[in-house]
Simulated scan of single mutants.
Amino acid sequence: MTQLSEADVAARWNDNADQWAHDVRQGYDTYRDLFTLPAFLAFLPSISGLDVIDFGCGEASNTRRFAAMGARMTGIDLSEQMIRHARAIEEQQPLGIHYAIKSYSQNTGFEDASFDAVVSTMALMDGPDFPAAMREAFRLLRPGGFIAFSILHPLFHYSRVAMAEGGRREGDGAGGVALFRSNRFRREMALWRPTERR
C-alpha cells in the first residue's frame, strides 16, 4: 500500500470536496447514514455539555450531529475546501461550531487538556500517521476524557498483509464469511463478503 503525505491527502480531499459535500448533503452517503454513524452513536457516551474536537471533520455533517446532541464542537480537517463547506453551513445554520484547517497528526495548536472528548468518524485511516494522531488526541484530553473513533475495518488492509506474510485463508466463503489467519498478528479476523445482491 502506498503511503500518502499529509499534503497528498489534503490535495485529494480538496479536489473531491465539492462533490463529496453535495453527495453527503443530498443523502447519497447511505453507508454512513444507515451503518457507520448509527453504530458510532450507539457506543458514544453522552457528550452533552462537553467540549469535543472532531478529528477529520470533513464537510461537517457528523460534527453538526454531535453539536445537536449538546456538545460544544470544534472540527479540524486537513482539507481547506472541506473546511470551507463546513464554515458555509455553519454560517447558514449556526450551531456554535469552530472549524480550523489543521492536521490531527501534528500539534493542532490547541492548549493541552482543552477537550473532554476527541471523536473521529471514518477519518483516521486516511491520515499518514495514526500513532501521532493518538498522541495529539491524548495531549488534548482533559483528565477523565475519552477518545471515540471509527475506521474502516483493519481487515481491508490486513487480508493482503496476512496472505503476503505466510497467512492462509480458511473456508470457501460460503455465506460470505472467510477467515484469515496470520502468524505475524497472532489473531483471527472474519471477512464478510455478500454472496448475492439484493
Rank of each mutant, 00 (worst) to 15 (best):
T121W: 02
D112I: 08
M122A: 15
V119E: 03
E111P: 09
F110A: 01
G109K: 05
S105W: 03
H98S: 13
Y104N: 12
D116G: 09
D112W: 05
L95C: 03
P94V: 07
Q92R: 03
Q106Y: 04
I101R: 06
T108I: 00
Q106C: 11
G96F: 05
A117Y: 12
K102Y: 04
Q92A: 11
S120W: 03
A100Q: 08
G96Q: 05
S120V: 14
I97P: 00
A117V: 11
I97H: 00
E90K: 04
Y104D: 08
D112M: 07
S114N: 11
Y104K: 06
S105H: 08
A113N: 13
Q106R: 10
I97E: 01
Y99R: 10
A117G: 15
T108P: 09
L95S: 06
P94M: 09
A117P: 02
L95Y: 02
S114I: 10
Q93V: 13
G96K: 05
A113G: 09
F115N: 11
S103E: 04
I97C: 02
V119L: 15
H98P: 02
E91W: 07
I97K: 00
S120P: 15
P94H: 06
N107R: 14
T121F: 06
T108F: 01
Y104F: 13
G109E: 02
E111R: 07
N107F: 06
A100W: 01
Y99A: 05
S103N: 05
V119N: 02
G109D: 02
A117H: 12
A100F: 02
Q92F: 02
K102Q: 13
S103H: 03
N107Y: 06
T121Q: 13
A100V: 04
S103K: 04
V119M: 08
Y99C: 05
F110Y: 15
F115P: 15
